[in-house]
Amino acid sequence: MGESETMKTEKEYEYWLASLHGISSAKKRLLKEIFHSARAVFNIEETARTSCWFLTETEKETLKAQQKETILDDKCRAWERARKQGICLTCWGDLDYPEKLIGIAKPPYAFFGTGTDCFSFSKVTAAIVGARDATAYGRQMAYEFGRELAKAGMEIVSGMARGIDAKGLEGAFAAGGRHCAVLGCGVDLCYPKENRMLYQKLQRKGALLSEYVPGTPPLAGNFPPRNRIISALSDVVLVMEARKRSGSLITADFALEQGIDVYALPGPVTSSLSQGCHQLIRQGAGILISPEEFLSDLPYKLQKLLIKFSEKSNENEIMLESPEKLLYSVLSLEPKNIQKIEEELSLTRGEIMEGLLNLEMNGWIQEVSKNDYIRLK
Rank of each mutant, 00 (worst) to 15 (best):
residue 93 G to W: 04
residue 148 E to N: 11
residue 5 E to T: 11
residue 167 K to C: 13
residue 93 G to T: 13
residue 135 T to R: 03
residue 315 E to A: 03
residue 233 L to H: 10
residue 67 Q to M: 14
residue 324 E to A: 15
residue 172 A to H: 04
residue 374 I to Q: 14
residue 326 L to Q: 07
residue 29 R to S: 09
residue 113 G to L: 02
residue 59 E to H: 09
residue 5 E to M: 13
residue 90 T to W: 00
residue 32 K to C: 13
residue 70 T to K: 10
residue 213 V to N: 03
residue 39 R to Y: 13
residue 356 L to C: 06
residue 335 P to E: 06
residue 228 R to Q: 12
residue 175 A to V: 08
residue 355 G to C: 05
residue 374 I to L: 11
residue 146 G to E: 05
residue 339 Q to T: 15
residue 7 M to Q: 13
residue 199 Y to P: 08
residue 12 E to R: 02
residue 150 A to D: 05
residue 117 D to M: 05
residue 109 Y to E: 08
residue 234 S to A: 05
residue 314 N to D: 15
residue 298 L to Q: 07
residue 136 A to S: 09
residue 45 E to P: 01
residue 95 L to C: 01
residue 368 V to L: 10
residue 102 I to T: 14
residue 224 P to V: 03
residue 205 K to D: 13
residue 343 E to P: 00
residue 141 M to F: 04
residue 158 S to Q: 10
residue 308 K to Y: 13
residue 164 I to V: 15
residue 334 E to W: 02
residue 205 K to S: 10
residue 103 G to L: 08
residue 47 T to H: 08
residue 193 K to C: 02
residue 232 A to G: 13
residue 225 P to D: 04
residue 314 N to S: 15
residue 135 T to N: 11
residue 68 K to T: 07
residue 71 I to R: 06
residue 119 F to P: 00
residue 332 S to P: 12
residue 351 E to N: 07
residue 272 S to D: 14
residue 80 E to V: 00
residue 297 D to W: 02
residue 343 E to D: 13
residue 64 K to S: 15
residue 175 A to C: 07
residue 177 G to K: 09
residue 112 F to W: 12
residue 140 Q to W: 06
residue 192 P to F: 09
residue 190 C to Q: 01
residue 350 G to L: 11
residue 293 E to K: 09
residue 97 Y to T: 12
residue 15 Y to W: 11
residue 256 L to E: 00
residue 149 L to G: 04
residue 17 L to Y: 04
residue 358 N to E: 06
residue 265 L to G: 00
residue 216 T to V: 01
